[in-house]
Simulated scan of single mutants.
Amino acid sequence: MKETIMAVALKGLSDNARKTSISELNGRLADSIALALAVKQAHWNVKGRNFIAVHELFDTVHTNLREQIDVMAERVQQLDGVAIGTAEKVSGATTLPEYPTGLTRAEDHIRALCDRFRDHGERLRIAIDATDEAGDADTADIFTAASRSLDKDLWFMESHLEE
Score class of each variant (00 low, 15 high):
Ala73Val: 00
Trp155Asn: 02
Ala34Gln: 08
His109Ser: 05
Gly102Leu: 00
Met1Ser: 11
Arg123Leu: 06
Leu35Ala: 06
Thr144Trp: 10
Ile69Glu: 08
Leu96Lys: 08
Asn64Arg: 11
Thr4Ser: 13
Ile84Gly: 11
Ile110Thr: 04
Ala137Leu: 14
Arg116Trp: 08
Lys11Ala: 08
Ala73Gln: 01
Val76Met: 01
Ala137Thr: 13
Leu113Gln: 04
Thr94Asn: 04
Glu162Phe: 06
Arg66Glu: 10
Leu10Tyr: 06
Glu24Ile: 06
Leu103Cys: 02
Asp70Leu: 03
Ala137Met: 12
Leu37Ile: 13
Phe51His: 09
Val61Gln: 15
Ala145Ser: 14
Thr60Met: 00
Met157His: 01
Leu150Gly: 07
Arg66Ser: 10
Ile126Ala: 14
Leu13Tyr: 09
Glu163Cys: 05
Ser21Arg: 07
Gly48Met: 09
Val54Gly: 04
Val39Trp: 06
Thr60Ile: 12
Lys47Thr: 13
Asp15Pro: 01
Phe156Pro: 03
Glu133Ser: 14
Ala93Met: 07
Asn50Phe: 14
Ala34Arg: 04
Gly85Gln: 05
Val71Ile: 13
Ala30Pro: 03
Asp151Val: 08
Phe143Tyr: 02
Asn64Ile: 12
Leu10His: 07
Glu56Asn: 05
Phe143Ile: 02
Gly12Lys: 03
Val46Cys: 09
Ala9Asp: 08
Pro100Tyr: 02
Glu3Gln: 11
Gln77Asp: 11
Glu98Ser: 15
Glu67Ser: 09
Gly27Val: 09
Glu74Ser: 01
Asp70Cys: 06
Met6Lys: 05
Thr20Ala: 03
Glu133Trp: 07
Thr63His: 11
Arg75Asp: 00
Ile52Gln: 14
Gly12Ala: 04
Leu161Thr: 02
Tyr99Pro: 04
Lys40Ser: 00
Ala146Val: 00
Ser14Trp: 00
Glu67Asn: 10
Gly85Cys: 02
Lys2Asp: 13
Arg118Ala: 11
Leu57Val: 12
Glu133Pro: 08
Asp108Glu: 11
Leu65Tyr: 07
Ser23Phe: 09
Ala38Glu: 01
Thr86Pro: 04
Met6Val: 13
